[in-house]
């Protein structure tokens, strides 16, 4: 059952001049849940969107390397992208119902792919909605606009919509980050149920979710592949120091900070200078936690710190504007 389903060879992705992914090579096993973890901005989503070639819709993207799905290189220019995307479903971060009725949302994919038979469509819609446990909630209002559903229901509808074209692989990009805890739980439960039929790849910045769901883990950091392997190995005995730090870092409640610094409102490079000054006062091995709200600091500050020989344990988005970065001297 664990045959390799997707294998990625020397994949690099560039947005204009910046590198989003650096020479990634790995294999993703079939019919399991694979979690891609790592701090925000590390290329998780880029990796996910490479697998169904959605990155092409961004201007000035360059891709090198290859991705094999069922032994076929999907980066091949001659490949029919629509057939590929039929085989690979996507569940996005924010629920994105199409501007049409609940029924039409689910039937959209099958209709696109040429299904005209009314009865077959009805059956598919019912099946898919039942799979995501939405059928009983909406069966009396299938003609109602999808936008009237609650956010949690919308996300389940989106899952049903992906399933309606009978994909083999399901890509999920932080599928629960916009949802309340109860809806998140429902989605997680569905994903676990679905893994017997589908290969699932999920991007998450929530390490607890990765531990709950994943059979296989990929850790990315600043566009580089740090570590990948079966979940129990990676979580219990990480080979890489950075993975250990990341996993530990997200249990920060247990870690004692030696100093905390609020750098909100400061811009690069001042926040970097302040952080360096604070680190100077600390002893070797002490841990500094800083809070920033400057988007460039989120990517640049850790890079600068690493270049100066400090260890960045974690960078984590706290809310819409604020990020925490944890650094060990």
């Amino acid at each position: 059952m664990n045959e390799t389903c997707i294998s990625i060879r020397h994949l690099s992705v560039f947005y204009g001049k910046s590198v989003a992914l650096k020479d990634i090579s790995l294999s993703i096993p079939g019919r399991q849940i694979t979690a891609i973890i790592g701090p925000s901005g590390c290329g998780k989503t880029t990796l996910l969107r490479s697998i169904n070639r959605l990155i092409e819709s961004t201007d000035e993207t360059r891709v090198s390397g290859e991705i094999l799905v069922d032994g076929q290189n999907i980066m091949d220019r001659r490949l029919d992208v629509t057939a590929l995307r039929k085989k690979i479903g996507l569940l996005a971060q924010k629920p994105s119902p199409l501007p049409m009725s609940i029924y039409d949302n689910v039937a959209y994919g099958p209709r696109i792919h040429g299904e005209r038979d009314r009865k077959a469509l009805d059956r598919t819609v019912q099946d898919c909605l039942q799979t995501v446990s939405l059928w009983d909630e909406v069966k009396h209002r299938l003609r109602a606009p999808a936008s009237r559903l609650s956010v949690g229901q919308q996300q389940r509808l989106c899952l049903a919509r992906s399933l309606a074209v009978r994909p083999e692989i399901l890509l999920c990009d932080e599928p629960t980050s916009a949802l309340d805890p109860v809806s998140s739980q429902t989605i997680e439960k569905k994903l676990v149920e679905l893994k017997k039929d589908y290969t699932i790849v999920i991007v998450t910045h929530n390490i607890h979710q990765a531990i709950r769901l994943a059979d296989y883990v990929i850790h990315l950091y600043l566009g580089e592949l740090v570590e990948h392997g079966p979940a129990n190995e990676v979580f219990e005995h990480p080979k890489e120091e950075r993975t250990r730090a990341y996993i530990n870092g997200t249990f920060l409640a247990d870690i004692k900070f030696d100093k905390e610094l609020d750098l909100k409102g400061t811009k690069c490079p001042y926040n970097f200078v302040y952080a360096k000054l604070a680190l100077d006062d600390l002893a070797e091995g002490n841990i500094l936690r800083i809070i920033v709200d400057d988007p460039t600091a989120v990517t640049e500050l850790p890079r600068g710190m690493e270049a100066d020989g400090y260890e960045v344990l974690n960078s984590n988005q706290l809310n819409k504007t604020d990020w925490e970065i944890v650094i060990r001297k």
């Binding site: 959605l54 590929l84 995307r85 039929k86 479903g89 996005a92 119902p97 199409l98 994919g109 696109i112």
Partner: peptide
């Protein structure tokens, strides 16, 4: 998002 939702089912 919704354009990609459509592309992602193979449209």
């Amino acid at each position: 998002d919704i354009k990609e939702a459509s592309l992602a089912v193979g449209a």
